[in-house]
């Protein structure tokens, strides 16, 4: 019966394609509309948080850290409430990760703070003896790429209707407006930090990568 297919490569290829495409469609399509709905009150990332998220991606923090708290008591005791689908509605890409070489970070903003991250990112083992996380000193000297962060926010607003610039929501506006807002948010973080260079740079209107990254980490709640 199948022998025929092996002699007719065109139909063979069609058969292969049908067999593999079929399962994919059934698995993927039904869930699509539902899973993309944000939970009540979910705010889009501010441009500064996006800049931080881009740093997170650039350094592949997701290689060691998950952002998915599974519904087990042992996980909710360690990390907080289990994750909900609607909380990820603005995550492009998703950052669940698949290894937990380091702890989950989906709600790290609830139990770690700016100054803690500052110490930790500079030298993890000094804060958590025995830590195997790398040091990230260059985050304190390199400027965050605010243009690309703005570009991402602008793109998701335009293409995916992410609700920026709503009343009482997260403002985006023009590149200049966004710059003002990023400086404003960075100010609060820089104030909680001790690194002199970061502070000085901020006075000159520069935002270091570490500031953006902390904005993102603090937002994970």
């Amino acid at each position: 019966m199948f022998h025929w297919l092996e002699k007719n490569p065109f139909f063979f290829a069609v058969a292969v394609f049908v067999v593999i495409a079929f399962a994919g469609l059934i698995e993927i399509i039904p869930n699509f509309a539902q899973a993309s709905r944000p939970i009540e009150g979910l705010k889009p990332y501010t441009p500064l948080e996006i800049a931080g998220r881009q740093v997170y991606i650039k350094e592949s923090c997701n290689a060691c850290h998950s952002q998915l708290i599974r519904p087990f008591k042992s996980e909710t005791d360690r990390y907080g409430k289990y994750s909900l689908s609607g909380e990820y509605a603005y995550d492009r890409p998703f950052l669940w990760g698949s290894e937990r070489t380091g702890p989950d970070l989906h709600r790290v903003g609830n139990y770690r703070t700016t100054d803690w991250h500052e110490n930790h990112m500079k030298d993890p083992a000094a804060v958590v003896p025995g830590s195997i996380m790398p040091k990230y000193p260059w985050l304190f000297t390199k400027n965050a790429d605010l243009d690309t962060a703005y570009a991402e926010a602008y793109t998701v607003k335009k293409v995916f209707n992410v609700p920026y610039d709503q009343p009482n929501g997260v403002p985006l506006g023009s590149r200049e407006d966004a710059q003002k807002n990023m400086m404003e948010q960075a100010k609060g973080i820089v104030a909680d930090m001790k690194d002199k260079d970061v502070k000085e740079a901020f006075e000159k209107g520069e935002i270091k990568e570490i500031v953006a990254l902390i904005a993102y980490l603090n937002r994970l709640k």
């Binding site: 609830n110 139990y111 703070t113 803690w116």
Partner: peptide
């Protein structure tokens, strides 16, 4: 003065 400690009520741990 040293730094911040988060609220354990908020994190619910």
């Amino acid at each position: 003065h040293i730094g911040n400690m988060p609220s354990f009520e908020k994190s619910g741990l």
